[in-house]
Design a protein around this nucleic acid. Structure first.
Lengths: 229, 229
DNA sequence: CAGTGGTCTAGACCACAAC
DNA sequence: TTGTGGTCTAGACCACTGG
């Protein structure tokens, strides 16, 4: 009974015991009731502390089996994916948007492979700039079967990214990052030299089982995506 | 009073009202007490539901000010950063590790700029392979001032990454992703052609205010880091 | 089948910040 | 100053799952 009563204090003590204390990898922790007695607080408090430490990736909790210290902690990082406008304006630079291309197409094969069967697709190519310097290319496909009202937007002044954020909810998202060589679009519009490394983010969004949109964001040279925690 | 009693049901209803219902961006939500009365559940349940929706990035909660729908939802993604071994073995391939270089050095300037003042630094270069094919280069610096016992490890059989995961806790981490051109190490050890795009992860770890280690992970060609949520 | 975590409740006090 | 979310409590029932 040590009168550690807030869930944050409990949390800190749990983490301490795991990281440099007696609870090495694989240890089975005492049950919640027992810990509540030890710390002199309610089971609810212990539960919240353990739940959050579990969310951090340090613990594995299962009914009946109990709470166990993970053999290898799951290392995870959380990134905020900002709108280009917000990212640019946050640096104090002037944001500009330009539509490069807009067409209604059949989805190419690689896209249907990714999004599922598609009929008509709105294909948009546009550019985000910071103080006049090209910053990011947005290459986007919108499934008109799932989102017909997109066809009425001309996207001359507003980027599809912003319009979609304001218009469409999302139930599932897949994001991937990779390094690729600059292609014709990056050379022409971002000013990359051919075959320069490009940081590319791809995101596909589903709503109620239907694929809504897929986007490729190609970043300016030297771009870094960073997070701390 | 609608007898939505579990926090998950409340959560789903809240999200529904935000995404395609009456609670557009900027809306001030009713207080927790009022919502509890409406849903016919306890305030605790409402609180948990709102807290989690807030963690999703859809709500902004402040004491006295109340709960408000964010104007632009914060889009965030969570990535698991796996050990190379786990990542490779998960594909069914045979994992192999090879130490390429091990030396005690003065920290280069860019490193001290990043980690703070350094005295002696253990510098390790090693390679992770899948079925004999180079998969990832680990280029690591360990601050011997903060972690002297690292000097006793030869890292001939175990990668510094795995040793550190098992040995060192961390209090703060910075991770960044970027695309770079292949350098001599990537050409020699990963088999990249010169100037090929390389996906690079950099991670710096602190413990109790002291920088412990910094690592650059360079991935094989075509590598993607993906997450769904 | 029994033990563990998962969750809900009703009530209470507190801390912060907007007014 | 005062309203709002933040948190704790004691107790209860439930759901999952390991033995």
């Amino acid at each position: 009974m040590s009168d550690i009563t807030t869930y944050r204090e409990v949390q800190a003590e749990i983490v301490r015991r795991i990281t440099d204390g007696p609870w090495g990898p694989g240890t089975l922790l005492p049950g919640e009731v027992e810990l509540a007695a030890e710390f002199g607080c309610s089971r609810t408090t212990i539960n919240r502390a353990l739940r959050e430490v579990s969310d951090l990736g340090l613990l594995d909790r299962r009914r009946k089996a109990g709470t166990r210290v993970r053999m290898a902690p799951v290392r995870q990082a959380r990134f905020e994916i900002p709108l280009a406008r917000a990212e640019i304006e946050a640096t104090g630079a002037a944001y500009a948007y330009r539509l490069l291309q807009r067409a209604i197409e059949q989805g190419p094969d690689w896209l249907t492979a990714h999004m599922g069967p598609l009929d008509r697709v709105l294909h948009i190519l546009c550019l985000h700039s910071a103080d006049g310097v090209p910053y990011q290319i947005e290459d986007r496909w919108i499934n008109l079967g799932a989102l017909p009202q997109a066809a009425d937007q001309d996207f001359a002044a507003t980027s599809p990214n912003e319009w979609l954020v304001a218009t469409v909810p999302f139930s599932q998202v897949e994001i991937s990052f990779q390094a690729v060589s600059a292609g014709p679009d990056e050379v022409t519009h971002l000013g990359h030299s051919p075959a320069a490394p490009v940081f590319r983010v791809e995101r596909t969004t589903w709503w109620q089982g239907a694929a809504i949109t897929h986007v490729r964001l190609s970043h300016r040279a030297g771009y870094r995506m960073t997070t701390r925690y």
